[in-house]
C-alpha cells in the first residue's frame, strides 16, 4: 500500500516582485511503514516539501495523493481535517500549548476530531504510556525537560493513529543523548508499523531511516534505500 504519492509538484512563491521556485517538479512515492529521511541544505526546498507533505500548504502544480486521496486542491478547512486524521507532527521546537498539561496537549487532536471525553482520555493515556510519561500526565510543559517535551509531542502525533508521522528536525533542540532517546522512540514506532518521515540535515539522524531522499535547488538529487 502506498502511504502517499507525489506527482511532479512545483511550488512557487511570490516574494515582492520576484518569483521563488521552491520546488521544481518533485515526484515521490512512500509506502506504508516506510522510514524515510528527507535531507538537504537550507534553501533546498526541504521545508516547502515538508509543508506540502504535511498538508499545511498546497502545491502550485502537480498532484499529491495521501492514501489515495487527492489533497492538492483542498481548501483550508479540508486540509485541517486531513491533518487532524492522517498526519502526526513532531516539530523541532516541540510546539506544545504552554498553559495546558501533558494529558490535555495529547488530547487536543482528538478534541478537534470530535471524540468523546472518555474515549479521548483512554487514547491519550495510552499514547502517553507509549512514550513513557505516564507519571507526568498532569504536568505543564514548562515543568518538563526538553526530551520529555518532545516525547509529549510524539504522543500527540500518534494519538489519532495517523497515516504518517512527520518529524521536522525532532532532535534539533536536544543534546545528543536525549536526541538518541527520541530517535529510539521513533524507531520503535516504525517497528510497530507506523510510516515515519524525518526531515533533517544531520546525517547521524538520517541514518536511522531506511531510505534517504536528498533535495537540492527544489529537485530530488538522490533517492536511495539504505537499509
Amino acid at each position: 500500500m502506498k502511504a502517499l504519492e507525489i506527482q511532479n509538484i512545483t511550488k512557487t512563491y511570490q516574494m515582492a516582485s520576484v518569483e521563488v521556485h521552491a520546488l521544481r517538479g518533485v515526484s515521490l512515492e512512500i509506502k506504508d511503514n516506510e522510514y524515510i529521511a528527507i535531507m538537504g541544505p537550507s534553501g533546498s526546498g526541504k521545508s516547502t516539501m515538508m509543508n506540502v507533505i504535511g498538508c499545511l500548504d498546497t502545491p502550485t502544480s502537480g498532484n499529491y495523493l495521501l492514501e489515495g486521496e487527492d489533497v492538492s486542491h483542498m481548501g483550508d478547512d479540508q486540509l485541517a481535517e486531513i491533518r487532524n486524521r492522517k498526519i502526526g507532527f513532531v516539530f523541532q521546537t516541540f510546539n506544545l500549548i504552554p498553559r495546558s498539561n501533558v494529558l490535555h496537549n495529547v488530547e487536543l487532536p482528538l478534541i478537534y476530531g470530535g471524540m468523546s471525553a472518555s474515549k479521548r482520555r483512554e487514547l491519550a493515556e495510552a499514547a502517553i504510556e507509549r512514550v513513557g510519561l505516564s507519571d507526568r500526565a498532569d504536568h505543564k510543559p514548562n515543568e518538563l525537560s526538553g526530551g520529555q517535551r518532545q516525547r509529549v509531542a510524539i504522543a500527540r502525533a500518534l494519538v489519532n493513529n495517523p497515516s504518517i508521522i512527520l518529524a521536522d528536525e525532532p532532535t534539533g533542540n536536544l543534546d545528543s543523548a536525549t536526541g538518541e532517546e527520541i530517535m529510539q522512540i521513533l524507531n520503535e514506532l516504525h517497528n510497530a508499523g507506523n510510516t515515519i518521515i524525518l526531515v533533517t540535515h544531520e546525517n547521524e539522524i538520517a541514518d536511522h531511516a531506511h531510505r534517504i531522499v536528498r533535495l537540492r535547488d527544489g529537485m530530488i538529487e538522490s533517492d536511495e534505500v539504505t537499509k
Binding site: 478547512d77 491533518r83 487532524n84 486524521r85 510546539n95 506544545l96 487536543l108 487532536p109 478537534y112
Partner: peptide, 12 residues
C-alpha cells in the same frame, strides 16, 4: 499557539 492548533487540525 494558533499555529499549533491549526497544524493538529483545528478548523477556522
Amino acid at each position: 499557539e494558533i499555529g499549533i492548533r491549526k497544524a493538529i487540525g483545528a478548523k477556522k
